[in-house]
Deep mutational scan, measured.
Amino acid sequence: SADYSSLTVVQLKDLLTKRNLSVGGLKNELVQRLIKDDEESKGE
């Protein structure tokens, strides 16, 4: 998976916004949300 932890919070929020995901929470939560979304989209 992508190394989201190396991105800035601003970059993470931009990715979340593009996916229509919540941008609330700490950086670690944003990273986990993106990883979870990646895993769910692979399952389709």
Rank of each mutant, 00 (worst) to 15 (best):
S1K: 13
S1W: 14
S1R: 14
A2R: 14
D3R: 14
Y4G: 00
Y4T: 00
S5K: 09
S6M: 11
S6A: 10
S6P: 04
S6G: 09
S6R: 13
S6C: 09
S6L: 11
S6Q: 12
S6K: 14
S6I: 09
L7Q: 04
L7E: 01
L7M: 14
L7T: 01
T8V: 02
T8M: 04
T8P: 05
T8N: 07
V9F: 07
V9D: 06
V9I: 13
V9W: 06
V9T: 07
V10A: 15
V10S: 14
V10E: 15
V10W: 11
Q11F: 05
Q11K: 06
L12P: 00
K13H: 07
K13W: 07
K13C: 09
D14T: 12
D14E: 14
D14N: 12
D14P: 02
D14S: 12
L15N: 02
L15K: 04
L15S: 02
L15F: 05
L15T: 03
L15G: 00
L16S: 01
L16V: 03
L16A: 04
T17Q: 13
T17D: 06
T17K: 15
K18Q: 11
K18P: 00
R19F: 02
R19S: 01
N20K: 11
N20M: 07
N20I: 03
N20H: 10
L21F: 01
L21W: 00
S22A: 10
S22R: 08
S22N: 08
S22L: 06
V23H: 06
V23D: 07
V23F: 06
G24P: 03
G24A: 15
G24C: 15
G24W: 11
G24M: 15
G24F: 13
G24V: 15
G24H: 15
G24Q: 15
G25D: 02
G25P: 02
G25I: 02
G25C: 04
G25M: 02
L26S: 15
L26W: 07
L26A: 13
L26N: 15
K27N: 03
K27T: 05
K27R: 10
N28A: 14
N28G: 10
N28L: 09
N28V: 09
N28H: 15
N28W: 15
E29G: 03
L30T: 01
L30C: 04
L30N: 00
L30R: 01
L30E: 01
L30W: 06
L30I: 04
V31Q: 04
V31F: 03
V31Y: 03
Q32C: 13
Q32K: 08
Q32H: 08
Q32N: 11
Q32L: 11
Q32D: 10
R33A: 05
R33I: 04
R33Y: 03
R33L: 04
L34K: 01
L34Q: 00
L34E: 01
L34S: 00
L34V: 02
L34W: 01
I35G: 03
I35H: 06
I35P: 01
K36M: 10
K36N: 10
K36D: 13
K36Y: 07
K36P: 01
K36I: 08
K36S: 08
D37C: 07
D38F: 05
D38H: 04
D38G: 04
D38A: 04
E39K: 10
E39S: 08
E39P: 03
E40L: 12
E40G: 09
E40M: 13
E40C: 13
S41T: 12
S41L: 10
S41G: 10
S41P: 08
S41D: 08
K42Y: 09
K42D: 08
K42N: 10
K42R: 12
K42L: 11
G43S: 11
G43R: 14
G43F: 11
G43L: 13
E44G: 13
